[in-house]
Design a binder for these strands. Structure first.
Lengths: 329, 329
DNA sequence: TTGAAAGCGCTAACAA
DNA sequence: TTGTTAGCGCTTTCAA
């Protein structure tokens, strides 16, 4: 943490030019045929005095900031905060840092944030796109900004994405609930949202229902409304349809469901939720979940993005990561 | 997202010099006595063509990056992810961005991260210090790097911090458990940690116990061990001491406690936890909590830091934010 | 194999 | 009231 040392200090100390130091620093000793002895000497001296290049100057010159912009729906949600943690870890291993923001699924805010990060010259974007973002994203692509979508994608936009296998996750979960006569009526709660992950989960549910020649009971909730309102809607649905099991499309919906059950003191149906939550193993009765593979998702996201940044050619990786069922009876 | 425009483009378009544009851009029209007409004209043109200054060049020149480094213990923990969200929001309102990392309470990793962020020229640090960091922090202070600690502080280091009133939170919670003969024996679970927040919570518990002339039952858990091990220790303690209520020093300890109770099928004592968790309102029986005021904490953290950055004089704000008890019977 | 010097885009001291 | 220009610290072309 001593006083900042410059590359010119190193050059002066050793009686050589900054060019040579710069070449050595950037692993170009071989290419520029700098003697091994000198290379070693410079490297040693740099380590000894603890020289660290000024990243700003470097970035200004090279146009690379080694910073990735991460826009998630809500960093306060356990799924996203755990994802953020893993993404950050993987990025760090590739020599990148993360600047992040929560979008709250707000289209305008997201657009502003993208512009802001773009102005800050992030090397690439990782984002959970809210609806209506096709144009903005397409714009980034047209400008050759590396990016990868996750959690959901935009069918209209041809780009990298990493998502969970939402369809099969929901399909298997629903199939499980219907198997061996475990339950006759399986309800499904989802959101008023056309995002792909929600659509796929719904389709997975429908496929299982159809396979089983069963009837669908579907209720969508508007998350912009007050929590009380949502809870009361869930209660109503449960009472009216008398489903004996329920599949919630997200963990926060499941939590609202539990609140409804508790508040109105009704009997708890068998519950399955998309996404895990600490609560699910401890609640009585316990709650099964479709678990997303956070480690693999994060790894794929970062490696796709880094690959696109380093090999400048535009690749389009569409990666679908399987989910696992955590059955808790 | 059009092709990048430079300040020199603006100057050329308008037939004036870059200096004038720069002054106007940096709100120095008044100071430099630039005519209002010209100022307006420039501002309009800038808006029209969508010019955005290159932050890197600006930063290189001014030494200000408008980026704050946030180091939290674990971004995957709800308390920290919610704090991060609020901090980010407040920072954004002050025109700052956040780069963040999780320290995992690892001394070496934290030191590396601080060095890394320092090399990236963050304008200031927000951090939850792990133990053994006195020297590194003192070093930052000696180098006039603005910083603010939160969640805990280092008694040996004279610097800004924002923490919750851990002592009174724990005191009131324990007092509540002991009041009106609610319980005779109140146990306390904490961590092997000398961090101030843990120490203060312990002292709050002790004070209440002493006030009540009751006996203390204290068990510390080592979080580096496997979860199974911790759960089994908690179980042992509960069975041997037959306490009728328990106060957990953190929410993840409380969750381990619930797992122990569930796994071994023992009767649940009355439970109080420091920190909230979604689970606590839904679990049966419900669990009371000492709730930290995340909004106020975040606001104070950011405003202290921004104040220190802008007024360069070294202030030392020591802010203690009250907690509230969420009683759930 | 190495060095001199231009230039990345901006701010601000100094000059006019 | 506005313009000229040095310089922030680094990379890299071109020359030696």
């Amino acid at each position: 943490m001593k006083k900042r040392i410059l590359i010119s200090d190193i050059a002066r100390d050793l009686g050589i030019s900054v060019t040579t130091v710069s070449f050595i620093l950037n692993d170009k000793s071989k290419e520029k045929r700098i003697s091994e002895a000198l290379t070693k000497k410079v490297l040693n001296h740099i380590k000894k005095v603890g020289y660290k290049p000024n990243q700003l100057a470097k970035s200004l010159r090279t146009g690379q900031t080694k910073i990735l912009g991460l826009l998630v729906e809500d960093i306060g949600n356990t799924f996203f905060s755990n994802m953020a943690k893993q993404i950050e870890k993987n990025a760090y291993e590739h020599g990148y840092h993360i600047i992040y923001c929560s979008t709250d699924n707000d289209e305008t805010k997201t657009k502003e944030l993208i512009q802001l990060f773009y102005d800050r010259q992030v090397d690439g974007f990782i984002l959970t796109p809210s609806e209506g973002l096709q144009e903005t994203i397409q714009n980034l692509i047209n400008n050759n900004i590396p990016l990868v979508l996750f959690d959901r994608y935009l069918p209209e936009v041809e780009t990298n994405y990493v998502v969970s296998d939402n369809f099969n996750g929901a399909y298997e979960a629903t199939k499980y609930l219907l198997a061996e006569g475990k339950s006759q009526k399986v309800g499904f709660f989802s959101l008023y949202s056309n995002q792909t992950q929600m659509r796929d989960r719904l389709e997975g549910y429908m496929k299982a229902i159809d396979d089983h020649k069963s009837q669908a009971y579907i209720k969508k909730i508007n998350m912009d409304e007050k929590e009380e309102e949502a809870i009361s809607l869930i209660h109503e649905f449960l009472v009216e349809n008398r489903v004996d099991s329920v599949f919630f499309a997200t963990n926060y919906l499941a939590i609202l469901g539990l609140k409804a059950i508790k508040k109105y003191g009704i009997k708890q149906p068998k519950i399955f939720s998309f996404d895990e939550h600490t609560l699910f193993g401890l609640h009585e009765p316990r709650i099964s979940a479709v678990s997303q593979d956070i480690h693999t998702l994060a790894k794929e996201i970062v490696s796709s993005l880094v690959r696109e940044i380093t090999e400048k050619k535009k690749t389009t990786n569409k990666i679908v990561v399987p989910c696992t069922l955590k059955i808790r009876d």
